[in-house]
Simulated assay, not measured.
Amino acid sequence: MSDTYYVKTLGGLEITNDNVTVNIVELFGKQLVNLLQVLLFHSEKPVQKDELIDIPRPESKNPSSALKF
């Protein structure tokens, strides 16, 4: 297995390694994919909880609780 992974973020989220592509949205759902995309784009620095709160469920009445789940 190669140490090189290719990540496609436009039009979904796919990770490819050695010609094997995995569609992450199909595996984990859109909300977790949105969270993963933010973490990937900010991989050079820690992401604070406050920055992540609105990602899983922006319409939530208790966004801190939504992030926990």
Rank of each mutant, 00 (worst) to 15 (best):
Q37W: 06
V38M: 07
L67Y: 04
Q48P: 12
A66Y: 01
V20L: 10
E14S: 13
R57Y: 08
G11H: 06
G29H: 02
T21E: 01
S65E: 06
N17H: 08
L67C: 08
G29I: 01
L36V: 06
N34R: 09
V25D: 00
N23P: 07
S64Q: 12
G11S: 01
V22P: 02
T16Y: 09
D3R: 12
I53W: 07
K61M: 15
Y5E: 15
E44M: 13
P56Q: 04
D54R: 13
T21F: 00
Q48N: 14
K30N: 10
V7S: 08
Q37I: 04
D18Q: 11
N23W: 08
H42A: 09
P46D: 12
K61A: 14
D3M: 12
I24S: 00
E59L: 14
P56W: 01
L27Q: 05
L13Q: 05
I53T: 06
V7D: 05
L13T: 06
R57E: 02
E14A: 10
E26I: 11
D3Y: 12
M1I: 14
G12V: 05
N62A: 12
L67W: 03
F41M: 08
E14H: 11
T16I: 11
I15T: 01
P56D: 00
N19K: 15
N34A: 10
L10Q: 08
L35T: 01
H42K: 06
S60P: 03
T21W: 00
S43A: 09
G29Q: 05
T21I: 05
I24V: 04
V47N: 07
K30F: 10
P58K: 07
I15M: 06
P56S: 04
P58Y: 05
E14P: 02
E59D: 12
S65C: 04
Q48K: 12
S2M: 09
N62E: 12
S60I: 03
L52P: 00
T16W: 06
I55H: 04
K68D: 09
S65N: 03
Y5W: 14
N17Q: 09
P63S: 05
N34I: 06
V47R: 06
H42F: 07
S60F: 03
V47H: 06
K8R: 15
L36N: 03
L10C: 10
Y5F: 14
S43W: 09
L35S: 02
V20P: 04
I24R: 05
Q31V: 11
I53F: 02
N19F: 14
G29E: 02
D54L: 13
L36S: 01
K61L: 15
L67S: 07
K68M: 11
D54T: 14
E26M: 11
V7H: 04
V38R: 02
P58Q: 07
S43L: 07
D3H: 12
S60D: 02
L27H: 05
P56R: 01
D3Q: 13
E51I: 11
L32A: 00
L13V: 08
E51N: 13
N23F: 06
N62Q: 15
P63A: 04
P63H: 04
T16A: 08
N19S: 14
S2C: 07
K8V: 14
